[in-house]
Design a protein around this nucleic acid. Sequence first.
DNA 1: CGTATTATTGTAAGTACTTACGTAAGTTAT
DNA 2: ATAACTTACGTAAGTACTTACAATAATACG
Lengths: 317, 317
Amino acid sequence: MDFFEQMGSTALGSRLRRLSEQMTGQAAEVYALYRLPFEPRWFPVFCTVARQPGQSVGEVAQAIGHTHAAVSQVVKELVRHDLVSIERGEADLRRSVVSLTAKGAALWPTLQEQAADVRQATEALLAESRHNLWLAMGEVEHALAQHSLAHRVKAVRDQRVAAEVQVLDYGPQYQADFKRLNVEWIARYFRLEPADLKALDEPDAYILQPGGHIWLAAYRGAVVGACALIKLDTHTYELAKMAVSPAAQGLGIGFRLGEVAVAQARALGARRVYLESNTKLGPALQLYYKLGFRKTVAGTPSPYERCNIQMELPLTP
Amino acid sequence: MDFFEQMGSTALGSRLRRLSEQMTGQAAEVYALYRLPFEPRWFPVFCTVARQPGQSVGEVAQAIGHTHAAVSQVVKELVRHDLVSIERGEADLRRSVVSLTAKGAALWPTLQEQAADVRQATEALLAESRHNLWLAMGEVEHALAQHSLAHRVKAVRDQRVAAEVQVLDYGPQYQADFKRLNVEWIARYFRLEPADLKALDEPDAYILQPGGHIWLAAYRGAVVGACALIKLDTHTYELAKMAVSPAAQGLGIGFRLGEVAVAQARALGARRVYLESNTKLGPALQLYYKLGFRKTVAGTPSPYERCNIQMELPLTP
DNA sequence: CGTATTATTGTAAGTACTTACGTAAGTTAT
DNA sequence: ATAACTTACGTAAGTACTTACAATAATACG
């Protein structure tokens, strides 16, 4: 038990499960108290049917928030115990329309009475606490519907990672890293082309001298990302050589590099930033989209075979 | 979903379950986010072992509040994934001592980091709500440990039933009920004896005239319980002919009748109330005990074959 | 010292749901 | 009218635990 205390809310899911098991276990005792030949898990289905007979399996599932499969199974059991009966739908023969049998109808008043007692007891239980469990659950469900847990955790991690990621300006000492990171992904998805090697081996001559820029991203002592901005003409720069090592992908490093490059292009007075990519590279395209790039219709021919999509980001001065 | 709104807290268990499922489902997404080859359900076990290696299966189960069987299964899976290893205990060969493998140890820092992120995210999630779910769960768990749900529901029901149960003084119109209720249980557990029939057929002559009393309990328009007080001598009354119809048992009707009888005995100046019963009748003996009766050592011989236990309640004037 | 009891674990089966999938009935497009 | 699809349902299998039971080791008792 001390696990929960130590882990705190990390184990929220486990703890919810444990409490729900405790509750359902005790629910069985409650039925025993009333000596009803009835299992707790039947309650939602039975109750829904009793209140409004003639609903189909799917409708009941909708009402209680379970799957149709679960309802189907419970209904089967209820039929076995002669508490409900099913008929084919009149207009629609696919539907299984459920209604109470005489035995089920006879049970219903007692069950309602018991439900009222349970309700009063749980309401008293909830009222005992300073923090109302029922309302708290409602709030958490609502919050999770807005942003999933994964989304929230990602936000936390991104913030933590952001503090640890450094974007560095290019220097000759990074040429090897620059080449390694790009070769890594090009070789993984395509074939290295001569045009690649020229720029990767001599970034100074092919990128920086013509008025371009290169950045690298360092994370925990390793260089894990790279990105370049190549000058095409006075008003146009190309975002190229974007690479993040697989181990560091998903940490928002590409986005950070892209932001820096776009900011620099804007500072240099560019009217648009252009890029070429391949539709096979889903996550990369998504990143470009998030940076504001949109697909261009017609395009300049590319020196790279692998490029089958062109995007651009117009910059308003 | 409107089921929850309509049923309110009656469905507390179901709702807890649903929320916990939602949480565990999203937990899987979180692991995917970190690209860890790790399943959420392993977490408590793995974490416990990583923190303090060399614990046995039973000890881990104790720490995380699951059964040893669950831990055994998870450990088996973790072994299959080469994350932990098990050895026989040194002093005690029954114990399965669990520790991390090299691969498991390598995973641990990342997992810790992830856990810290999850914790921060869930804490922010909880902080968003006015009613703190974590604290509310703690309070409810505590409250349920004090009194189980069944106990609470029983209290509610007893109160409701008490208002509907009426204890009636005997009149000739109840002779048939008085006989029926007693014959019912005597015939069920034993054989009717001549002494029974005398008192049941002519309660006036055999119970009331000699200075005794008879009460009946009515519940929802039916007479469902009976009980008599027979005068043995100036200072001693016998509690007898206690009967509650099976359908109404467990509603505290016997206790109500017993209380009335004992109060009357006290009002009549009795020093003790005596009764005879049979050890086969467990619930009845429990009722007598709750009323304050205790087993007597030696006893007067009984006219009834079925009596093998005698109890008495001393009354201080 | 042998036997009865207790402790520790693993395995099987159950629980109350889920997801995945197949079948039959209905609906829409050609 | 036929093909292609969508919908409703039931069945099977999975999930993450549980309880029940069996096997083996340790300990207590006479």
